[in-house]
Nucleic acid binder design. Structure first.
Lengths: 204, 204, 204, 204
DNA sequence: GATGAATGAGTGTTCATTCAT
DNA sequence: CATGAATGAACACTCATTCAT
């Protein structure tokens, strides 16, 4: 019984990963159930024993990302100082983007045009992360550790950097973006944002 | 003859704009030639007198963006000081994103999965902009006006901020991102990057 | 323009007739759009220019029957005496069954299991015919031309005879039911019902 | 061994009844083996240990009806006088229709389009009943108890009344057909046919 | 015997593209 | 040039049937 359960979950995961792969490569619309099945090594009909529809596959991918989006590393970072926090956040999000690359790419083509997916994506993934970052920044500003700033602008600005850099690494690794390690990225961006947000003398 | 030519071009443009609209709303795959035609007020077959295929419409949209991507404002900004340059770039790219919103949104769903589109998008649009920004930054660093930094990281970081903020304004204006004017955005981001890149005392 | 209109209607009719044929032969479920198209000599996709779906085809068949179900012959029969009326009704319904045989057979397999079809069939086709018959019978009874009877039983009884005899003629012409002309049927049934409903002496 | 046999038969019957139920509700084509199995409380695969195929289920249903179609009541009625005979036949067939409603309804959607089923249905069920009725009528006519008539028309006419009235009771109990008891039906129809077939003075 | 996961053939429907008018 | 009816390839999804356990 335990075995059965485990097997079902393993197969479900295998299908989900294959789907994310194919969605990521061809986009949701162009991806075919047949190819997803072929990549798992099963018949197309079998997928429907685990997922209600092609769309259900997409939503399941979203759910999985949601489950992974906010983890301990992120939660524990709030106890660090500004420099450590920024570095920790960058490190964790770069890791998240890398580990879930196929899943994120699978979703991204549809998020633009699918309201339900958009809703899930923004309220469940982006929203909590932004909220956490905003709260931390405001606390630091209040404590005089960072200069006053509009967090609703700064947080998306930092997020956008991570998103675009991760996307470029996944899509065009050789063009535009030379091979840069995570740590180099973190180092450079930490400086940029830390200095960019440091208390200004003229504002003291 | 000149008139004919003009009429052709006007109609071509009308089709292109309708296509961008529909692609933007539904995504390339879900958009139908029939709806594009209906929005122009012509028959579906007529589109094929102006464009070879549905895909050709997409490529033409890309071409049009390419034509608009690098304009004078951008070219002239290089003569400004760092603060002015950053503000000018931000202002210009926010304007570009706003003015070409439909066209950009039309492209974005397919850029992820279409190699040819990717090629055009990155080498023709992103590439030149990045190159220009990189050159300016390096010159400023050499002149001691900005601290040494890895431009291949900083430039995408700034670009990512613009991209994500523009995307969020287009997709989820009410959620997450309060109603912020361009100038407020520019002001905040200029500070962030200017201070973030200012020469450090310990590095002098 | 008139031509176009006529052509559209002709083609629509051709599709409808082919559909009725195939539905009648194989039943609605087993019938395929491909075969219907083939029988009209068009491509499967073309059917969808005239009908929204396979089901729409079925409902259109029902509508067509509804339009033909109650005609003048039936309406004028109410002015005849009992013998003439019964004969007229029988003649008209036998004709209706024969002329619309394919359409009726197309419908019959689905009427049993499809609530919407059932609704249409009973309220639009069976209902009006039964109502008309019931009214006539009651008037004749009131006038002392026929014996008192429960019309809600007699009318379906007569209808059932027509239905079963028509069905047997269509399905098993050689078995059970020898080759009998319409007039022979009418003659025999008219006697059966006329005598069966004639005023009884003991009831006067 | 006897027990085993009994268990097998019980389960076979249970499956058959569930199948008749589902076929009757949804029609043969729309019914699924899965639902039939679920209604018996077994796995789909188990059905195949008792029946060769879905179609085999349908044929078994037909066989079961055949076994029940002609019973003693029907056979003994031939010793009654015309009035008693007609009433007995009506009573018995109404009972048969009611008791086997699910089975009859299961068959009816397919009889129209399935030649083999048609064959069985008409030669094994309808045929013997018609033959028995015809024989009785002819004997009564020969004995001067009923007027000469074409039995090959009258018998289906009576049968059609029973079929349609039973069908309407099953399908649309509330519409068209008020709630009428079997005995009321028998009473009214017996009069209709008895008087309709009574010897005519002018024919004596 | 019983199970139920797996199969894969078959179908309704969509839509980019063509071409006769 | 313009039309829009016609095409037919492609694809998601269903479900009777099989077979390893």
């Amino acid at each position: 019984m335990v075995w059965r359960e485990t097997f079902r979950e393993q197969r479900r995961d295998a299908i989900l990963e294959a789907a994310a792969e194919v969605f990521g490569e061809k986009g949701y619309q162009r991806a075919t159930m047949k190819e997803i099945a072929a990549r798992v090594g099963i018949a197309p009909g079998t997928i429907y024993l685990y997922f209600k529809s092609k769309r259900d596959l997409l939503l399941a991918i979203a759910d999985r990302l949601i489950g992974q989006a906010v983890d301990q590393a992120l939660a524990q970072a709030v106890h660090l100082d500004a420099k450590g926090y920024i570095a920790a956040i960058l490190r964790d999000r770069l890791r998240f983007a890398r580990e879930n690359q196929a899943f994120l790419q699978a979703l991204v083509t549809e998020v633009w045009t699918d309201p339900e997916l958009q809703e899930r994506f923004f309220t469940q993934i982006i929203g909590p992360i932004f909220a956490s970052g905003s709260r931390y920044l405001q606390a630091q500003v209040a404590a005089g550790k960072l200069r006053p700033c509009r967090v609703e602008i700064v947080v998306p600005a930092v997020a956008g950097a991570i998103v675009l850099l991760s996307a470029m690494r996944a899509l065009v690794p050789d063009r535009l973006l030379p091979d840069i390690s995570d740590e180099e990225l973190i180092e450079e961006l930490t400086q940029l944002y830390l200095y960019g947000l440091a208390p200004r003398e003229e504002e003291r």
